[in-house]
Design a binder for these strands. Sequence first.
DNA 1: ACCTGAACACCGTTCAAGT
DNA 2: ACCTGAACACCGTTCAAGT
Lengths: 245, 245
Amino acid sequence: MPTSRSTDGSRRTRRHRGSLSADDIIKGAFDVAQGMSLDKLSMPGLAQHLDVGVTSIYWYFRKKEELLNAMTDVAVEKFVRMMPPLTPDEPWQRALSEHFTAQRRIFRDDATLADLMLIRTSTYSRNATRRVFELEEGLLALLIGQGFTPENALHVYNAISVYTRGIVIHDRILRLSYTPTLGAGHGRQRRMTSWESMPILDSLIDHYPLAGTSDEDFTFGVGRLLCGFEQLLAEQDRGPAPAGG
Amino acid sequence: MPTSRSTDGSRRTRRHRGSLSADDIIKGAFDVAQGMSLDKLSMPGLAQHLDVGVTSIYWYFRKKEELLNAMTDVAVEKFVRMMPPLTPDEPWQRALSEHFTAQRRIFRDDATLADLMLIRTSTYSRNATRRVFELEEGLLALLIGQGFTPENALHVYNAISVYTRGIVIHDRILRLSYTPTLGAGHGRQRRMTSWESMPILDSLIDHYPLAGTSDEDFTFGVGRLLCGFEQLLAEQDRGPAPAGG
DNA sequence: ACCTGAACACCGTTCAAGT
DNA sequence: ACCTGAACACCGTTCAAGT
């Protein structure tokens, strides 16, 4: 009984020194994650994809978490490069709208990026943190330049940022939960059966998606936030809260 | 060399029929998840907690996922019961604010509930879906009763719902990533070192939390959304978009 | 310095029983 | 009908080597 052979019975030839690098591993990890999904990325699976022994990976990354952190760094770099640059003196409404619309599109189109940057529990490296904060700093400067106080600018940025993350993550989770599990057919249910006693939802269900993660939903949410920000700016100009007692 | 004994060498006595039930298992699973976290809930660990053989669980739940789905059902039930009932004729701003503030508090105080209902990729059971939609229906009725069109009511609900989920999930993920990993000390970094070239963030960092998930942030975000909704309602009353070409 | 298989502890799950 | 251990395939990780 042969025990630890490859499935096809072939045995790899030993790789020569320097034939593997940390970058190769990260690259391969992205390939595997793109093909399946991030949480199906396993060290043995990755090793097979790279055609190396599993333990070779551990020379470069002492924990799987280290590898994921390295991937997150690369993801942040990718993300920052894909984001459109700020147009100076652009109206803040347009700047915010474009920034977060782009952000949503990027994460929607690249699930691995979203998993690494938004869903996985990780702390960014100094460099990744810096790159992300530089983007934020740019938007804050733009907001402040057009009249927001620094505190309000920060709150504005956080609010729309959290909203965007919320819609991306919710959308991702919905997408995952409806992915046919290969076994097919035994999902818990396809459709609600009884809308009785819920006439409003019943009447809306045919024309609107329920989940609230559609383009229309996103546009609506961003629109309402921007509207609320405008009011804030107006109130800020009208009557700055009297300082001191 | 003894191989498959309990750690302490003791061997359980066989349990009698009917000494275990699906509810016992679900209850035990919540206990274990509360103690650690949901993704550290393992079948062997749960079996040990219940003092049964691992395989006994499989008589009641044929997959771990089935158990998690059952837990989600219970979670939804808990959640719905913890939510404050709607006060009829309450101003919609207050109703929305109270509803989603309560929701945020519940998920913040019970991480397992948040993990099951918000973060885990699952499809709700018919009953759970119904309970959640009943809550939504109530709020929609209130909004429509105070002037919103059904479509706008739905958009309003979705927007504030996504924002709340976003802040809960983001907060949960931040909390997880800062949990000392028991190994202690080798987190990636404690603090940003160089805020050079980011004067705005540098000046804000001392007085405001960066993450955007504080109570203040939540109040701000909800406030801006409500403000945006008010404008929408005003515009809706003022000039309903002319129908047809 | 780099690459490797054997080995270990752990997990989810199946199976063929025991009562 | 319910409970069980043995066993399997898989995973993350360590170790003691090989080159």
